[in-house]
Design a protein around this nucleic acid. Structure first.
Lengths: 217, 217
DNA sequence: TAGATTGTTAATCGATTAACAATC
DNA sequence: TAGATTGTTAATCGATTAACAATC
């Protein structure tokens, strides 16, 4: 056990963590007990030293020279770092196709995410349940967020309603917004915002493709 | 008009581009003709010099001292850079809730994305059409990808089938994969892979929230 | 013209990589 | 023990920021 000082992590480092986790879980499933930074690095196409650095800043128990890192504790430590171990109750607004897809997604449990309630303005949807999650009228949102002390909100409404929904959420006490609507939201400094941005994803993908194409010449 | 040399862009820079675009489109809608790097920087919370650097590497016409950048040409240049202007025919595999949500998503046109055909293995879905996109049996995928010369594939199948689908796609000539299944896919070096990773997004959001919380003390 | 804003060169900052002693 | 692999310190690399001349 070593001393830890509070560190901050780069965006790139945070993005690598779930990838480590995936690979480690695969290893665990195939019964592998130890893994070296070299293995991980090769598999993920990154420098093993970077792997060591990333892991060392998250690990609570040291790796073992010659053996590598014990897979199971390593998984636990990364999950702890990513906050998958504590359950986060979230609220979802907008129960169209995308909202429903997220509501019926069974992978959220793995990340400690629990959608407790959903809201919409369409009378046809109010009162329905999807995957055990009740859909309520949007007018009840602020009150419920406050009463249940929810602090993460998922926005899956059409883009012209997204800002309004965000404003309401924030007024009610939401501190983190996961926005799936293709608009730029304006939020106060103390609110975290993550845009699930189809545009960005595609930008990255086609940029990668261009690079590979060039490299191949 | 200035000389351009081939530059490569950092991940962070590519990620900023769609954000510029969103803000610029808002400006255009409200009839604004020129915008300065200072404005953009303030709105997006980044350094204006960084804005200038990003834009200068994408712009085909110079900005104007005192006035700033002309909004409309700037939008066009970024769209050109991001490849929104040329239509990319893509194939989607896995027409469950998520796949259907993507198929019925009307924002893709803005990014030059056109889902031409979808595949599934569920007999109940074969032959159906969603948003004008036909669902065909997975056994016909390879042939069709090759014949239509498609090179981007979207994977929205359950995670245990994702690798198999990816392998087939690649065999048929796909060069870019947009993976929504929560697994680590292994692809050859010449194939670009973008994971739409719910886990990563959440990791980033909760990391942000932690940071803000600390900062506030 | 004077002032605002651009584009670019130099300085800084931070992240990644290389080198290497410690250790099981 | 010898060898493999860890953790850490120093060097490198790249991205961001600061400074400033050019210009409309």
């Amino acid at each position: 056990m070593k001393e830890k000082n509070i560190e901050s992590f780069s965006l790139a480092a945070v993005l690598r963590m779930p990838n480590y986790l995936r690979y480690l879980n695969e290893l665990r499933e195939s019964g592998v007990e130890y893994v070296s930074s070299t293995d991980i690095g090769e598999r993920m196409g990154i420098n093993p030293v970077l792997v060591k650095k990333d892991l060392s800043s998250v690990l609570r128990t040291d790796g073992k020279p010659k053996l590598g890192y014990a897979v199971v504790p390593l998984i636990q430590d990364i999950e702890y770092f990513l906050g998958y171990d504590d359950v986060k109750d979230v609220v979802l607004v907008g129960t169209g196709r995308l909202g429903q897809a997220l509501m019926s997604y069974h992978g959220f449990e793995n990340y400690g995410i629990n959608i407790v309630v959903a809201f919409d303005s369409d009378p046809a949807l109010i009162g329905k349940e999807i995957n055990g999650i009740k859909i309520m009228h949007i007018s009840k949102m602020e009150d419920l967020i406050t009463r249940l002390r929810l602090n993460i909100g998922v926005i899956t409404v059409p883009k012209d309603q997204a800002q309004e929904v965000a404003d309401k959420m924030i007024r009610a006490g939401i501190k983190g917004i996961w926005n799936w609507a293709p608009v730029h939201l304006t939020v106060p400094d103390d609110v975290a915002l993550k845009n699930e941005d189809i545009a960005s994803s595609l930008a990255i993908l086609s940029n990668e493709m261009k690079k590979k194409l060039k490299g191949g010449i």
